[in-house]
């Protein structure tokens, strides 16, 4: 356990720079987005009201109030989120390959540590989780700050204010990264963890068997995916809705746990018996 925590600490420090870059990029671009969007709304209002002498009420009627919703919908806001997702997705691979590639052969050290090799797997997957949750938490902190920013720029009579909660419930795009309920959270992030564990296993297959391993890894991913959606397929096409939704959910969770266990078992086997530096 102590070794696991030390490894997590170590792995996280290795990605701290990339993590900081993602955080600051998100912050900067989203805040710029708030400014740009607010400004363009205000410019339009200026133009309509002071140049074209449109009454304020009519302006609000035809163009609506400025709400944070418009900002969230913009590429200024969603762009950084997409980049962060891509960054984490990319790092899922890099977290392994960086130990092998180039002049750096840190994998020697990692595999020779006097601790069970599965701890390397656990530490890396934990690092990915920490990154993900860190980014989401940061976004949650950032939202009220950005809302405040908009409030200082746009006068009250042009605004329709929304709380963070309200925003989230109205944005299906956001509800995936920031789930509305605890069950959803478990479901979304559980699935995420599962996907990462399956990808890790596939990576270890490639690292163990190289070309043949790529094939094996892809087959493993395919099998895992099929098994995971099997209950849904059966429900839909064979059992004609035999299960209640709750039962189906439990079934899915069990299937997920089985796949997770299989991935961990397989990774342990590969790391102790088949891995090659």
């Amino acid at each position: 356990m102590r070794n696991y925590l030390k490894l997590v600490n170590f792995e996280f420090n290795r990605v701290a720079k990339l993590f900081a870059v993602l955080l600051s990029f998100t912050f900067i671009v989203q805040v710029i987005g708030v400014i740009v969007q607010s400004k363009s709304y205000l410019n339009m209002a200026d133009k309509k009201i002071y140049e074209e002498f449109m009454p304020k009420a009519q302006f609000l009627e035809s163009f609506g109030h400025m709400s944070f919703f418009q900002i969230i919908r913009s590429v200024w806001f969603l762009g950084p989120i997409a980049i962060c997702i891509a960054g984490v997705g990319f790092y899922i691979f890099l977290i392994w390959y960086r130990d092998w590639l180039g002049k750096n052969t840190f994998i020697y050290r990692l595999l020779m540590l006097p601790t069970t090799r599965l701890n390397i797997f656990y530490a890396k997957i934990t690092t990915i989780l920490i990154m993900t949750f860190g980014l989401v938490a940061f976004q949650l902190i950032l939202l009220p700050v950005e809302i405040l920013f908009m409030k200082t720029m746009v006068p009250e009579e042009f605004r329709s204010d929304m709380g963070v909660g309200e925003l989230l419930t109205n944005m299906p795009e956001l509800s995936i990264i920031i789930p509305g309920s605890f069950v959803e959270l478990i479901l979304y992030y559980g699935t995420g963890l599962l996907v990462v564990s399956v990808i890790f296993t596939a990576i270890l297959m490639e690292r163990s068997f190289r070309w043949k391993g790529i094939f094996a890894g892809l087959v493993y991913i395919a099998i895992a995916s099929v098994i995971f959606i099997l209950p849904l397929l059966l429900q839909e096409f064979v059992l004609n809705g035999y299960f209640y939704p709750v039962e189906l959910l439990v079934l899915e969770i069990i299937t997920g746990l089985i796949i997770l266990a299989a991935s961990i078992w397989m990774s342990r086997f590969l790391l102790t018996k088949k891995i090659t530096v």
Partner: peptide
């Protein structure tokens, strides 16, 4: 691994680490 060690013909620490940090890493785990 507490009984046998291997010194490969390759760098086994991260390039950005100082020698002191590398030693600390070893001290942490072994």
């Amino acid at each position: 691994f507490e009984k046998i060690t291997f010194i490969p013909d390759a760098i086994t620490m991260l390039p950005h680490m100082t020698i002191a940090e590398a030693m600390e890493f070893m001290d942490d785990f072994y």
